[in-house]
């Protein structure tokens, strides 16, 4: 199977591998998996005070297409608002990397991962903004550990 140059580049030189502090209030973490192939993907975003995504990191255990898809997404979301980042579609990822049809599901995983990271970030900021809930925050965090 012939893979595109962009895909091979992202696979061989993945961007933004690593982790951000998942307990930090300005970090959203998305953890998703594709059980049929045993892939697991973690994608994190750090949102600045201006509402723009200032950093993104990923860690993926899976095939080359899953690694390339998550690497590409971390590159794309930087500098975007979370609303903009939420519009990324798996078809855009698949098209950019020229994924073969059997690997389309890897781009679905990356789309679901960024959506999950955004949802996690939103849930955190909603908790902080809501004074009624912020008092019980420490206990709920301790319980979630």
């Amino acid at each position: 199977m012939a893979y595109s140059e962009k895909l091979i580049d992202h696979y061989e030189n993945p961007r933004n591998i690593g982790s951000l502090d998942k307990n930090s209030e300005d970090v959203g973490t998305g953890l998703v998996g594709a059980p049929a192939c045993g892939d697991v993907m973690k994608l994190q975003i750090k949102v600045g005070a201006d509402g723009l995504i200032e950093d993104a990191k990923f860690k993926t255990f899976g095939c080359g297409s899953a690694i390339a898809s998550s690497s590409l997404v971390t590159e794309w979301v930087k500098g975007k608002t979370i609303d903009e980042a939420g519009t990324i579609k798996n078809t855009d990822i698949a098209k950019h990397l020229a994924l073969p049809p059997v690997k389309i599901h890897c781009s679905v995983l990356a789309e679901d991962a960024i959506k999950a990271a955004i949802a996690d970030y939103r849930a955190k900021t909603a908790k902080v903004d809501d004074p009624a809930k912020s008092t019980g925050k420490d206990e709920s965090q301790a319980a979630a550990e």
Partner: peptide
């Protein structure tokens, strides 16, 4: 169980 290409969270 989730089919091929379906994700879990």
């Amino acid at each position: 169980l989730p089919a091929d290409g379906k994700t879990i969270d």
